[in-house]
Design a protein around this nucleic acid. Structure first.
Lengths: 89, 89
DNA sequence: CGATAGGGATAGGGTTGA
DNA sequence: TTCAACCCTATCCCTATC
C-alpha cells in the first residue's frame, strides 16, 4: 500500500486565477505547465505545475477528450484580453 | 441540474461497524479511508471509502471542525481494545 | 533528473429519504 | 423540518513514462 503525503488544505481556483491559466495556455500551449508557471506575466496563488494541469483538465473537459491536434487550443477562439497589469491573487 | 445515479438503499451504521471505523482511524489516521477499508483487521458492511468518510463526519463533528493537528485523532483518548477476531457485520 | 499524462483518492458542498 | 446516509466533482496525490 502506498504511503500518501498529508494533503495540503484545498484552495478553490478563482475566476481571475483561471483566466491567467487560460492566457498562459494561449501563449505557451497545452502541457507547458512549468513554462506558464514561470512566466511572470501570469500570477498564481501558490500553485504547482501539476495544479495547473489539473485545473485545466476540469475547466476544459471537452477539449481534453480529443487528444490530437492540441494546437487548436491556441486558436483565436480564446479571445480574452491579457491583463495589462496582473495583480497578485 | 446534475444527473444523479440511482441511489443505493440506505443502511444505518451499527455501533459495531462504527467502532471498527474508529479503530481504523486510530490505526491509519483521518482521511486514510481506503487504507482502513482494505485493512482486513476491520470489517465493514459493504461500504465504500466515501461512506467511511461520511460516517466519520457525522460521528465526530467536533474533531472535524478543528482542521489542524489531525494527529490528535490518534490520541490514546480513543482507547478501545481491538477485537481479536473481527466478525462480519 | 525534471516534467507531464493519466489514473486514483479525498474534501467539502449538495441531495434526499425517513 | 432535521439530519444521517449517500452523491458529485474539483482538488490534490502517485507514478509510469519520456
Amino acid at each position: 500500500k502506498v504511503k500518501r503525503r498529508a494533503a495540503k488544505p484545498r484552495r478553490k481556483w478563482s475566476e481571475e486565477e483561471t483566466k491567467h491559466l487560460l492566457l498562459g495556455v494561449h501563449k505557451h500551449g497545452v502541457g507547458r505547465w512549468t513554462d506558464i508557471l514561470d512566466d511572470q506575466q501570469f500570477r498564481f496563488n501558490d500553485r504547482t505545475a501539476g495544479d495547473l494541469k489539473d485545473r485545466f483538465r476540469t475547466c476544459c473537459p471537452e477539449e481534453l477528450r480529443s487528444k490530437k491536434d492540441k494546437e487548436k487550443y491556441k486558436s483565436p477562439t480564446l479571445s480574452i484580453a491579457p491583463p495589462s497589469e496582473p495583480k497578485p491573487l
